[in-house]
Design a protein around this nucleic acid. Structure first.
Ligand code: FES
Ligand code: FES
Lengths: 145, 145
DNA sequence: AGATAAAAAGGTATTAATATCATTTTAAAT
DNA sequence: ATTTAAAATGATATTAATACCTTTTTATCT
């Protein structure tokens, strides 16, 4: 099992891609995004639609339309995307699947999982969507394949 | 998304349960295990069958048969269960779903994920199946609901 | 040997995740 | 106004995860 769902993986990669491609105020179409992050286009369309409805990204219909990010979207933490797509179970649920994770009825790995979950959350919450725009432009980081 | 698949969650909980219930040399039946960890019995049967085939747990057919753990099984790390059930993708794969995680073609979160994956692996690899037998007997930890 | 109790094996059912397709709405350009 | 380019919507298809059921094999006990 991966940490995130496919939906979430594509979502994060797409948002990074949109961020660095529209930093200049342009918009970008679904085809170019799907191609840029090696994702199935119709599936990605659904994902971006959903992120747009939830206000994580912005979109504009019609000719010269496309997806983009406004200032406040660029400074959102990645944890917002994850919560919007996969929910908060990664940050809150018991790692061994107990109905509720709590100090009252803890599983044997409760303390260990608590720390791991916190690390994941801290990392995602302290990283913004726009954080890698420069590195993506210079090609240090990849979103493809 | 949870960290582990349901299969893996049930598997780990079941193995903990078997460990502390058979520390005295007894065997334990599928019904009692399923009940002890609140899992669907036929599904758990499949999982334990698989773990038994892979040598993670031991089983014995016929009357007074059941599942149990030998000495060497008790000292196995949890990472062995996870690898047997969910594979090693949690420890190796790119968090953003790139085909290969590598220093050559890293995703923007490569270094962050590397650390998180290492933490998870270290935790699972340094915890043995038998580690919580005492706490489970005294009821400090729970495997149910 | 026959009856019984247990896991193993194999097959089926259901549900959720992933992926695709066809149609509609929106806005711009002519 | 008409055409066109784009996302939004709604419907469908495929695949994988989860759950369940039936039959078979194995070992024990009488
Ligand atoms: S109870 Fe399992 S992680 Fe808290
Ligand atoms: S390339 Fe993404 S985690 Fe290494």
């Amino acid at each position: 099992m991966a940490i995130f769902s496919k939906t979430c993986e594509y979502g994060i990669r797409a948002v990074f891609f949109i961020a660095h491609k529209t930093a200049n105020g342009n918009r970008i179409g679904i085809k170019e995004i799907a191609n840029g992050i090696s994702s199935p286009e119709p599936f990605l369309a659904k994902i971006l639609q959903d992120l747009s409805r939830k206000g994580i990204i912005q979109s504009f219909k019609g000719p010269h339309g496309g997806f983009y990010l406004d200032e406040s979207s660029l400074s959102r933490p990645l944890s917002d995307i994850v919560e919007a797509v996969d929910g908060d179970s990664l940050f809150k649920d018991c790692g061994l699947g107990l109905k509720a994770c709590s100090e009252i009825n803890p599983c044997p790995l409760h303390n260990q999982f608590k720390e791991i979950r916190n690390n994941i959350y801290k990392m995602l919450n302290s990283t913004t969507i726009g954080a890698f725009n420069n590195e993506l432009l210079t090609g240090i980081f990849s979103l493809k394949k």
